[in-house]
Design a protein around this nucleic acid. Structure first.
Lengths: 233, 233
DNA sequence: GACCGGTGGATTGGATCCAACGGGAGCGAA
DNA sequence: TTCGCTCCCGTTGGATCCAATCCACCGGTC
């Protein structure tokens, strides 16, 4: 996975990128929950820029699937329905094992950092901290792969489902929690042994089980569009 | 897969989309080969619009992976290196069987059209016609799946590799050609039998073999970046 | 009382204008 | 001759202004 560009000064020609990056951080951090309206003028003021680079930023975030833009109407932070989230997890089940197998040969000493992350995850109780560690753990396990689009696609899937992973983590029962950590440790072991095939299998199961548990909590998602049905207030 | 919006009049608020669509058609059709510079003012004139919606369109196409935008410098039609193309084919090997298996239960009578397309592909000699049929064949086989992102991702992979599939088709030897058609017929048979598992296997092999043959023809791609090496002119 | 159509404000989309960056031609020095 | 510097022009990026669209509110009518 290619590292992102250094966070240094964005000079001229990068205002849109800057706005997009900060907005993305706000969305992923949970400050802007799904469904919140995003007004161009408001952002322009917040970032001391005109509305032109804001529109650029919104287009970029739309491409990332983080924002939904409706022509002539406005932009909202994207929200997922359960079926869409499941679909993304199905994609992850197929793509991430591939990415991991491409990464393993070049991971080298980073395995030890993976092991540390897996342990830290067991000891934290803060949801936000856990999410950060989990994300770092998995993305680090892909850091050995030199990829152009596969890595971006996987990151995109992580980003668009981030908010629901947060909700899901909150209602994780102790047993599932135990299993989750065990899977992480098994993953570390397989990676340490450079057994790509086994690592693929463990990871697929890890994502798959998460998807199945996710389906047990439809209340975190926006309702399915029920045509011709008025929601009695 | 969700059908794209009807091609009807784009009124106000869709100029960027219109430009992006026509540009995309030009790129996929081969009119604008990889590497050609895309100037904003030029497009603005061609589409009787200002440069603002043109920039919108370029951002959309950048998100589709069809053009590459360098800040303060310009935009070019994207070109792939062999390793990137192989990576995309590896993604296709994983994603398209999934998409197909989601599509099969709802394909219904469209199987017959698939069979017709597979036959037509055998009888044409025109490369452009073959490409259209092949694309239609596979995308139609996914038409039963109701997806939000999986379908888009697969389409994106098809689009970005389209130009190289054209080059590849040109230098297809008779034996490989025979195998390719056989695979298509096997796919139709599996779909007709509603045997999703078998269809997945056939499709994976189909894409995989294409990838391997593709790797035999690196001359169609842009050279790998060879650092610290001056290309003697 | 509920539904339909018109109207005004808020918001987005597009055009035009100005500023900043980048590349290349040309000149000069080693 | 070749390397390096400078200046200039073409292109892109950003700001401001104007037009088109949508939404909510309001009044009229059945």
């Amino acid at each position: 996975m290619t590292a992102e560009p250094p966070p240094g000064e964005h000079g001229h020609g990068a205002t849109g990128r800057r706005i997009a990056d900060e907005l993305k951080a706000a969305i992923l951090g949970g400050t802007l929950p799904p469904g919140t309206r995003v007004r161009q003028e408001e952002l322009a003021e917040r970032f001391r820029a005109s509305r032109v680079p804001v529109r650029d930023a919104l287009r970029m975030l739309e491409a990332d699937g983080l924002v939904t833009v409706v022509p002539n109407t406005g932009a909202w932070v994207s929200h997922l329905r359960l079926v869409e989230c499941e679909e993304m997890y199905r994609m992850r089940e197929r793509l991430e094992p591939l990415l991991l197998s491409m990464s393993i040969p070049a991971l080298g000493p980073r395995v030890e950092q993976l092991a540390r992350l897996a342990e830290q995850m067991e000891t934290t109780d803060d949801v936000e901290h856990f999410l950060r560690l989990d994300r770092e753990f998995h993305l680090l396990s892909y850091a050995g792969a030199e990829t152009s689009v596969l890595g971006d696609t996987v990151k995109r899937l992580w980003n668009t489902t981030q908010h629901y992973r947060r909700a899901y983590t909150l209602m994780l029962d102790p047993v599932s929690r135990r299993i989750l950590h065990d899977e992480h440790h098994m993953l570390v072991a397989a990676i340490r042994a450079a057994d790509a095939e086994d690592a693929e299998r463990v990871l697929e199961g890890h994502i798959r089980r998460t998807r199945l548990r996710l389906a047990l909590h439809p209340e975190a998602f926006s309702p399915e569009p029920t045509p011709m049905t008025r929601t009695a207030s």
